[in-house]
């Protein structure tokens, strides 16, 4: 919970968090090492200096540290956990649903557990998706269209195989499709930077929500264009938001563009924990104001009400969370910290 100076409580749903294991014991090869090094680069390049961790802590921070950073020291009321398998790089995977389920078990009212699928897994993958829906009651999945698999260097969400999975997801009540379209892993020319596939599937699956993580960076321009045309395309702020510290001027402009093209109801806060911690992000975001010149030009403001939507309201809507009921529930439940 974040409290404003006037005492108003703001319900925070962190739209994008991870619990990973990139400890030396779990790293399978050079790619695994370079992958976590790259994440650490993001962390150290965009965090305020006093928020920078050691590389050792960053590689594996564990459940208790995460609870502390999100819910005790941090302002998050709930968090959406998105898995990242990367089994080619890490022996037990980087950040699997099984790992995330540990946190869910300890904090059942706070964690929204998402699954994953890969259309290249054929029938077996569809069965696995059914199993995830049954065991974990997932309402969302995270997809990495650029992930390597055997000889394949990625896929498009508009591929026929992907459509089979999206149809299955819809049947299983998995409504929220988070797609990693951002600075990424191994993009060649069939690449994750291209956001055009979202345009197709958003039209063909009007009952699903497509949350484009990282707002399609580094293709923000193309993404805004697609998102404005599709009412079920959302933008996740992970990676975009940390610029609020290092490049506030650019952040203001990007935020104005997102408000202009996507609109205030389609932008979701996400810390991308453990790359960044939510406390400083939320504090800076709450204190942030768009320069008057920009507001005059775009006609878009970043009011308290809009901030509330971005920080929790929009995610609550697409995940079916009743904020008032959830507040009451959390007040009564003691957090199961061991």
């Amino acid at each position: 919970m974040y409290k404003t100076k006037s005492g108003e409580e703001i319900f925070i749903i962190d739209g994008h968090v991870h619990l990973w294991d990139a400890s030396p014991e779990n790293i399978k090869n050079i790619h695994g090492k370079q992958f976590i090094d790259c994440f650490f680069g993001y962390h150290s390049a965009l965090s305020p200096p006093e928020q920078v961790w050691t590389a050792e802590k960053f590689a594996k921070y564990g459940v208790e540290q995460m609870e502390k950073d999100l819910f005790i020291d941090g302002p998050d009321d709930m968090a959406i956990m998105n898995p990242t398998y990367l089994k080619d790089f890490y022996k037990n995977g980087f950040n699997t649903i099984e790992q995330n389920a540990v946190l869910k078990k300890r904090n059942p009212d706070r964690i929204i557990l998402n699954g994953a699928f890969d259309p290249r897994d054929g029938e077996g993958g569809l069965e696995a998706l059914h199993a995830q829906a049954e065991i974990y009651k997932i309402k969302g999945v995270k997809l990495y269209t650029a992930e390597w698999k055997g000889n394949s260097r990625g896929y498009k969400l508009s591929d026929p195989e992907a459509y089979k999975y999206l149809e299955t997801a819809e049947k299983l009540g998995i409504k929220n499709i988070h797609v990693h379209k951002g600075p990424t892993i191994i993009p060649l020319d069939r690449d994750a930077f291209d956001v055009a596939d979202i345009d197709h599937c958003a039209t063909d699956f009007p009952n699903l929500n497509f949350i484009v993580e990282h707002c399609g960076l580094p293709r923000l321009d193309d993404f805004c264009w697609i998102a404005v045309q599709e009412s079920n395309v959302f933008g996740g702020l992970a990676v975009v938001l940390p610029f609020i510290h290092s490049r506030p001027g650019y952040f203001a402009k990007v935020m104005s563009e997102l408000l202009f093209w996507l609109g205030e109801d389609k932008i979701l806060f996400g810390s991308d924990y453990g790359i960044w911690t939510p406390r400083w992000l939320v504090e800076k975001f709450m204190a942030f104001e768009l320069p008057d010149e920009l507001v005059q030009e775009t006609g878009k403001q970043l009011t308290l009400d809009i901030k509330k939507k971005i920080l929790g309201g929009n995610a609550a809507r697409i995940y079916g969370v009743d904020i008032e009921a959830q507040k009451a529930k959390l007040r009564h439940a003691e957090m199961a910290v061991a």
């Binding site: 680069g41 321009d221 650019y250």
Partner: peptide, 27 residues
């Protein structure tokens, strides 16, 4: 067309930061 330039500037800031972090230098 402003989105195009803004996008490139944003990426430029990101890439400089990552390069500097990777090689332990000032951006």
């Amino acid at each position: 067309v402003r989105r195009v330039g803004l996008n490139a500037e944003f990426n430029g800031a990101l890439c400089r930061g990552l390069l500097a972090a990777r090689y332990g230098e000032a951006p």
